[in-house]
């Protein structure tokens, strides 16, 4: 990662965090609100590959962990795994040409992320995370991040210094490739 990428990434992180803590919390649907940070981790993985996805997921997780009453580091763990997995999927050779590929992956990754968060939280002794509104949270977070994956993709491309006119998940250049 270059210094420029780090600076842009930090800017994106702070803006996303503020949006989550303001607009995100006000969008209360079916007993739950969107969680932009997990969606950003998934999209960062799709756009930047598993390494950037993992780092972005860790950073977004740590950022939101600062404001959650759950164990510090839990969101970072989930974000790391989701970002890396999404990035691995994007580089696995699957056909990424379909326009719904990105939103689909963001939706599924977000749903898995919320469930993983609840399961790990339960393992760590947090009560009722698997029963209190899990279904609503999974649904709201997954749908919201699926829709928001379009703007998130543009933001991640910008942060990673990629050509904004190119398709995000239709082909990521591997470092060292000959032009």
């Amino acid at each position: 990662m270059t210094g420029k990428e780090v600076t842009r990434g930090l800017l994106v992180l702070i803006v996303a965090l503020v949006l989550q803590l303001t607009v995100g919390l006000d969008l209360w649907v079916a007993g739950a609100h969107p969680e932009l940070m997990i969606g950003l981790a998934a999209v960062a993985g799709l756009v930047g590959g598993p390494e950037r996805g993992a780092v972005a997921g860790f950073c977004t997780g740590i950022a939101i962990d600062l404001f959650l009453p759950t164990p510090f580091g839990l969101s970072a763990l989930v974000g790391t795994l989701i970002g890396a997995a999404a990035g691995q999927l994007a580089e696995s050779g699957v056909d990424r040409s379909h326009p719904l590929f990105g939103p689909g992956v963001a939706t599924i990754a977000s749903a898995i992320g919320v469930i993983m968060f609840a399961v790990l939280g339960t393992v760590l002794g947090q009560p009722d995370m698997l029963t209190t509104g899990l279904g609503g949270a999974v649904l709201v977070v997954a749908v919201a991040n699926g829709v928001l994956s379009y703007p998130m993709t543009g933001v991640c491309r910008w942060a990673f210094g990629q050509d904004a006119s190119g398709a995000a998940w239709r082909g990521t250049l591997v470092s060292g490739d000959a032009p």
């Binding site: 590959g49 598993p50 390494e51 993992a54 780092v55 997921g57 860790f58 997780g61 740590i62 962990d65 164990p71 510090f72 580091g73 839990l74 970072a76 763990l77 790391t80 795994l81 890396a84 691995q88 580089e91 696995s92 050779g93 760590l124 082909g171 990521t172 250049l173 591997v174």
Partner: peptide, 24 residues
């Protein structure tokens, strides 16, 4: 990009996971 699992990627993910667990 073709599917590949670089050692570097695995190391980065493993370090971040360990760091998260340490924080928890």
């Amino acid at each position: 990009a073709r599917p590949r699992r670089s050692r570097r990627t695995l190391v980065i993910v493993a370090v971040l996971v360990l760091l998260s667990v340490t924080l928890i």
